[in-house]
Structures are given as C-alpha cells and as structure tokens.
C-alpha cells in the first residue's frame, strides 16, 4: 500500500472525528452555543467556577460523554482488529471469547443483588463488577479450551468454548432478569444495549488511560499478527512464539474491551464492522489497521451516539440499538457486493 494513500485515509478519519466531536458536543437535549463552549473552556483554564447552567452541562455531561465515546469506540474497534487477526477469521468480534457476556453477567449481578451485599465502591461498583465478570468469563474460556490438549490451545477449540461460555453467561443474565424486580430488570436491559449517558470524568480518565496504553502495546504485535495470516505453523517458522503471542494479545483485548464495556454497557457491531471497512480501504496490514481502527471506531461511536441522542430528542435511544441497526445492513451489503472473503 502506498504511503500517501494511507496518509489521506488517516487524515480524513481524523478530520471527520474532530468535526463529529464538535457537533456532538454542541447538540443534544440542550443545544449549547459556541460562545458558551468557549467561555466554559476559558473559565476552566483559569481555574474559575462555572457560572451558567449550559456551561456546566457542557463541562460535566457533554464533554465527558464525547470523550468517552471516542475512546470506547477506539477500544472496541481495535479489539476487533486484534481478535480477527488472532483467530484468522473475519467474523470474530471482541465479545466472542466471552468478554462482553461475562461483563453483562457481572453487571446484572450488581443490579439484582448489589444492594443486599455489604461491599460497595460507590459509582465504581458497576464498572468493577462488569470488568471482573468479563475477565472471569474470558479466563474461563481460555482455561477450558487449553485443558483439552495440555499445552497448545487451538483457535477452533477457543472459538467453540467461547460460544458455549457466552451461551452460559447470557442465560445467567436471563435468569437474573427473570428473578429481578421491574426497575432492576429494566436496568439490565438498558445496560445490555449500551449507553454513554452516564459518563463522568474519573471514569473517562480511566478508560482513556487503559485504551491508550493497550493500543500502544498492541502495535508491538502488529508484525507478528500479520505473519499469523499465513497460519500458526508458518508464523512459528518465521520465528514467532505463537502461544505467547496469543496469550499477550488476548490479555490486551480482554482488558481493553472489559474496561470499555464496564463503563458503557454492551455495544455490538463496532468491533466487527470497522476492521472490515478498513481492510477494503487500505488492505489488511495490521500495522495500519490498529491506528485506523482506533480512529474509525471513534468516528462510528461518536456518530452513533449523536444519532441516539437526536433521533428521539429529548429522549434517548440506547446506542447499541443504533450500532446494530446501522451495522447489520452495512455488513450484509458488504458481504453480498464484494468478493472480499474469497
């Protein structure tokens, strides 16, 4: 791929992201004028208190939400790039190894039983519960798929175990919603469809730090993930330790996706569709896919959040509904119109 073409793609994605972020910061249930945004930023930089209601909406609700959307989108899309490369399979999503269903189960457990337990971490309780759920279920998938033939964990057994464990945890979520009282069941449903509406600054900061560090670390494995396209044997013959690579990349993916999911709920299709679109734009070299995936994931999630907020304004749609409703038709059109797969 020519350098210049990659450059153009990166630059346009970046400009699009900035544009969407600005629009997204302005519009919503309350419209905020450019002047109010400017004044809020000036006041913050001078360390003054915010005066106006709109200024406070901007600083405490709108801006954290926009930033959260950007980094969650990046995390989900990069997760998709990593998983598809690792499993050598174009229909893999980050949730496939059990991460999102485990996180959903952890969240449901919190909604239904959280009040009866003594432990409480305030606003961090839900993210921690979801993150632990995601990590536990992924660890379970990995452990079960390994124990079948002692040392090597083949991709197929990992995928199949992932499907089984997903079903198990989703039925757990179903059971919890069944025994839950109405408002709890509603919280579970809402969380499973994802929303950015609860974003707060500490949470945003945490997601930003985790996403950026995982993204930078994953760049180190881009070359090895490329070699994996030839197959596990061939990658090994090119000097790579495939089992170590799998462990490291899975770990990065789990941390990134579990943390993102923990704060905003389950958002599907971003991790599946963004890598596809980009492969068509600039090919499959993972060195570029990780960066462009992060940018495009951010663009897609910011746009989806904007739609979720504006479509039924002043009410809000769960963002997971928007990403699926837009994502599915795009995916089907892509499948039918290109001979991309083979």
């Amino acid at each position: 791929m020519k350098r210049s073409r990659i450059g153009v793609i990166f630059l346009s994605l970046l400009l699009l992201l900035i544009l969407l972020a600005l629009i997204s910061a302005k519009y919503g249930a309350v419209e905020i004028s450019n002047q109010e945004i400017w004044e809020a930023l000036v006041r913050i930089s001078k360390g003054q208190e915010l005066m106006d209601l709109n200024e406070r909406i901007f600083m405490q609700i709108r801006l954290p939400r926009v930033i959260m959307g950007i980094f969650v989108g990046a995390a989900l899309a990069v997760g998709g790039v990593l998983m598809q490369a690792l499993f050598r399979n174009p229909i893999v999503e980050p949730g496939l190894v059990g991460t999102s269903s485990g996180a959903a189960f952890g969240a449901a457990l919190y909604f239904v039983l959280g009040a009866t337990f003594q432990w409480n971490l305030g606003e961090w309780t839900l993210p921690v519960a979801a993150c632990l759920g995601g990590i536990c279920s992924t660890a379970l998938v990995f452990y079960l798929s390994r124990s079948r033939n002692s040392s090597k964990s083949s991709v197929v057994s990992l995928l199949l175990t992932g499907i089984a464990i997903n079903a198990l945890f989703l039925s757990g979520v179903g059971f919890l919603s069944y025994i839950a009282r109405d408002p709890q069941a509603r919280s579970i449903t809402f969380w499973n469809l994802g929303t950015l509406s609860g974003a707060y600054w500490q949470g945003v900061l945490f997601v930003v730090v985790v996403t950026v560090s995982c993204l930078l670390l994953s760049l180190r494995y881009a070359k090895n993930l490329n070699a994996l396209m030839l197959g596990e044997q061939e990658a090994q013959l090119l000097g790579m330790n495939v089992n170590t690579l799998k462990m490291k990349v899975l770990l990065l993916n789990v941390i990134m996706v579990a943390v993102a999911t923990a704060f905003v709920g389950v958002i599907g299709f971003v991790g599946l569709i963004v890598p596809h679109l980009l492969r068509m734009l600039h090919g499959s070299d993972n060195r570029y896919l990780i960066w462009s995936g992060a940018l495009m994931g951010a663009v897609v999630l910011t746009a989806s959040d904007l739609v979720a907020r504006l479509l039924l304004s002043p009410a809000e749609l769960p963002i997971g509904i928007v990403t699926s409703m837009v994502g599915v038709p795009i995916f089907i059109v892509l499948l039918r119109r290109t001979n991309y797969f083979f």
Binding site: N89, R220, A222, A227, G231, E234, S284, D285
Partner: peptide
C-alpha cells in the same frame, strides 16, 4: 520452510506476502 497450498486468512497484496519473508530480519 516452504509447504504446499498456503492460504491467507485476509487479503494481502503480493508484495506484502513476499515481505513476510523479511519479518525475522527487522524489528517493526
């Protein structure tokens, strides 16, 4: 090592596949 019938899981350009032979020789 060269074996028979190698397939790729994703589309790559021919020159990108040839470059994979150099992977053991450069960092990133």
């Amino acid at each position: 090592v060269l074996s028979q019938n190698l397939e790729l899981s994703f589309p790559l350009k021919v020159h990108e596949v040839v470059m994979m032979g150099r992977y053991p020789h450069f960092e990133s």
